[in-house]
């Protein structure tokens, strides 16, 4: 599904290297968790995968379903089946949720060779998927994310994920800002979307989320590198001991 090989990325403006040789392989149907201290490069990795501007890829490659991901524009990546749930979802004043999602759903459907959804079918789909993450119906008629609470924004990301049915979803700290009930709802949503042909990369600071969304693999990202990988139990160890022990290990290695 996703094959990241020796990926180096720097900030375009000043050349500061943030990602310093990432290797990661995600097979179809797998859930990978990425953990790591603040500023270690987790969101940068997600941004580079989604195609955000402002970064130079200085080395390495990313293949997605066998194709060169880095060669595609962000919208093409999305139509090919990549989805990023933003750590900080963007407010779009004046852009109505339905207009926004209709454009999104239909451009992805067109790419997949499917017909445009009729207005009626689209609204039905919206209603169904909103119920799925308990998104307040009134939010569906508002401007995208504008004035949404922190938790509502995160729910809205998962709602969009459910609408767009990607092949690979990268969730960047979707759990932060969610209360325990919301966390359960969002996790349930993600779990229902798990499928043999759909993979997830879940970025989080908290073991809590991984109680609900049980990962196949856990990776620790520090200083722009994946310094440790393991199974679900690694998350427990990080929760208990923090990252210092890995730092020491990494220095020794």
């Amino acid at each position: 599904m996703l094959e990241i090989t020796n990926l180096h990325a720097s900030i375009e403006d000043d050349g500061t290297e943030i990602l310093k040789g990432i290797n990661l392989s995600v097979a179809a149907g797998e859930v990978h968790a990425i953990m790591g201290p603040n500023g270690s490069g987790k969101s940068t990795l997600a941004s580079v995968l989604a195609g955000r501007g402002g970064y130079d890829i200085t080395q390495g490659s990313v293949s997605f379903q066998g194709e060169d991901l880095l060669d595609m524009d962000p919208d093409v990546r999305a139509r090919e089946g990549l989805f990023l749930a933003f750590q900080y979802p963007v407010e779009l004043p004046g852009v109505n949720m339905a207009t926004f999602l209709r454009h999104a759903v239909n451009s992805i459907r067109e790419h997949r060779g499917q017909d445009e959804l009729s207005a009626v079918d689209f609204l039905k789909l919206m209603k169904e998927k909103a119920a799925f993450v308990n998104l307040d119906p009134s939010l569906r008629s508002r401007a995208v994310n504008e004035g949404f609470s922190g938790g509502e924004k995160k729910r809205n990301e998962i709602f969009q994920l459910a609408m767009l049915e990607p092949k690979l979803a990268v969730l960047d700290e979707t759990d932060s800002g969610l209360d325990i009930d919301a966390l359960r709802v969002v996790s349930d949503g993600v779990n229902q979307l798990r499928a043999a042909d759909r993979s997830f990369v879940v970025i989080t600071h908290y073991q809590r989320l991984l109680e609900y969304i049980v990962p196949d693999h856990v990776h620790v990202l520090m200083g722009g590198r994946i310094v440790k990988s393991g199974g679900a139990e690694l998350a427990h160890k990080l929760e208990e001991h923090g990252y210092d022990w890995i730092k020491d290990e990494a220095v020794v290695a």
Partner: peptide, 12 residues
Amino acid sequence: AMFYLQTRGIRK
């Protein structure tokens, strides 16, 4: 905002 829309598959 442009990037956000594009990540949802919407052409530039």
